[in-house]
Amino acid sequence: MAIDAYEILAVVFAMAILSWTFKPNPVHRIVESLYVGFNAGYLLVTNMRTAYFSGIQPLATNVILMIPLILGILMYARLSKKYAYVSNYPIAFLTAIGLAVATRSIIQADVVEQIKSTAIPLIVPTSGLETLGNIVIAISVVSSIFYFTYATEHTGAKGILAKIGIAMMMVGFGANAANILLSRSARTITMLGYIMVPSGIYVVPIMIVIIALSIYAEKKGYI
């Protein structure tokens, strides 16, 4: 049987991470540190590359790009206690741009369009289920918005409306929980795909022994 080093490496990593669910151990922590380090380096390289191609390379034809480049560099002033306040300027720019970009369409996208989608004819003559659904959605929207309204006390009829809102949200969270489970199960399939390979037959027991020994060594204070 040909030895695939990459396959073995994948089993080692997957087993190391999986061992955390049994007990945190040095092997898992080493692999985790490996990931943190590799990811940090990759993040740095990709972002600096992006900054170079978006900001520095076009500088010759677009001198005004000097401003965001200087602002980006000013962010590093945070490393100094004396000049940390200088980093507030690029942060202020980013805050302003981010806020403007996000809020200029928020009324259209998250309020007007949502109201338009809710204010539809409730009765659908051809489908009883859809009619029921339209009524439920209208009640659901009104009651869940009302639940988040704190200007008035939720007592009496208002209290009932808020309770309906919570009930509808519980239905939504239940549906969400099922979909979260789908996501996590899919990711587990990926991980199991790394372990359930031909090399796994002998690598998995070896990893179990190594992890057990590392737990023992940590307990005894050797690591």
């Binding site: 928020i106 979909n179 789908l182």
Partner: peptide, 18 residues
């Protein structure tokens, strides 16, 4: 919704996690 649909009306297909 804010950056693609509302300002430009471009149709969107979303493939996402649960």
């Amino acid at each position: 919704a804010r950056q693609v649909a509302a300002p430009y009306g471009i149709p969107i297909i979303l493939l996402c996690d649960g």
